[in-house]
């Protein structure tokens, strides 16, 4: 019982994801699975970004670079070198983590808007480079031979279900990592950096190292997820892999749910995609869905900057223990 209470924040977060996963599992519909796939992919991406954005306070505007680069590395290994999905996913994660490590050493010295600008520059530079990089197919990209999917359960449909459960498992892993960071000494150091980096250093927090590792952690999972996403997709091209818009959507999800909390990005990611799906299919909003989403974003930024979880936490301090 004591353990249950201690981990109530984590358990609640995982239950939310499991409930989402249960939905298509029970009704068995491909369309529901696709809807939920997008939702939990967003949950995983937003939770990854939250380690840097929410805990450490660094606004990575080009975080999609890790999704795209990891996706490309893994996809290349699958499509050209005939690797299977699992090691390719691992390689994608390693590639993104490595990029974040070296990048972090350089650009995490920049603060505030300068860091945000640099991350945009990095994403654009990598995108433009891949556009020219022949082994990765240049502007055309790469595609998987359809027969590959037969190795994952028999056919394309089975491979899609497999991808879905793989994503679910990864998402839960991201949440566990996010929770572990949030409740660790390392995480406390990150929070201190977020609040006042110079003061944190004066108290002994080795900020350059801590920031770099936060950046690496927040980059690894998008790399792995990129491989899975483009495997399921069947092809990869520079434009969708490094879509700056996705970066910004990730930030919006974190912000919507509540940055710096474990549960916030989960609600934000799932809620954002659900809402977007609604706008896209609703005849009234279909054509101006982007404008409606923009309007709601503005309302959130202006009036509830702490996000849903942050707002609830401030209104009901007693719930702080559960809503971590």
């Amino acid at each position: 019982m004591n353990g249950l209470r201690k981990y109530s924040g984590l358990i609640l977060a995982i239950v939310v994801v499991l409930a989402l996963v249960a939905w298509p599992t029970i009704n068995g519909k491909d369309i529901t699975r696709e809807v939920v796939f997008t939702m939990i992919l967003s949950v995983a991406l937003a939770s990854s970004l939250n380690i840097l954005l929410g805990y450490t306070g660094y606004v990575s505007f080009g975080h999609v670079v890790f999704f795209g680069l990891g996706g490309y590395v893994g996809f290349y290994l699958m499509a050209v070198q005939n690797w299977s999905l699992w090691p390719a996913m691992l390689a994608g994660g390693v590639a993104s983590g490595t990029l974040a490590f070296f990048l972090g050493k350089a650009i995490l010295r920049l603060r505030g808007g300068y860091f945000a600008l640099a991350t945009i520059g990095v994403n654009e530079a990598v995108r433009a480079f891949i556009n020219n990089y022949k082994p990765f197919g240049g502007p055309v990209g790469l595609s998987l031979n359809f027969s590959v999917y037969q190795n994952y359960g028999g056919g394309a449909r089975e491979a899609l279900w497999l991808s879905f459960y793989m994503l679910a498992a990864l998402t839960i892993l991201v949440i566990i990592v996010s929770y572990a960071v949030r409740t660790s000494k390392f995480g406390l150091g990150l929070l201190a950096i977020r609040e006042d980096e110079d003061a944190a250093e004066i108290m002994g927090v080795r900020a350059p190292n801590a920031k770099t590792w936060a950046y690496v952690l927040s980059a690894i999972f998008p790399g792995i997820l990129g491989v899975l996403f483009f495997f399921k997709n069947g092809n990869i091209e520079p434009a969708p892999a490094f879509r700056l818009q996705l970066s910004i959507e990730m930030i919006v999800m974190v912000m919507l749910g509540g940055q710096g909390t474990v549960l916030g990005p989960i609600l934000g990611g799932a809620g954002y995609q659900r809402f977007r799906g609604f706008l896209l299919t609703n005849p009234l909003f279909k054509n101006i869905q982007l404008a409606v989403a923009g309007f709601l974003l503005l309302i959130i930024v202006l009036f509830i900057p702490a996000g849903i979880i942050g707002w609830v936490r401030n209104r009901f301090p007693k719930l702080r223990r559960v809503l971590q």
């Binding site: 919006v252 982007l290 409606v292």
Partner: peptide, 23 residues
């Protein structure tokens, strides 16, 4: 407010203009 707020506030304007403009 911190940078994130102004970045997102101006980005929301971006979305509104592009959304309406595309329509």
């Amino acid at each position: 407010a911190p940078h994130l707020s102004t970045l997102l506030a101006t980005y929301s304007v971006n979305m509104m203009i592009i959304g309406v403009g595309t329509a």
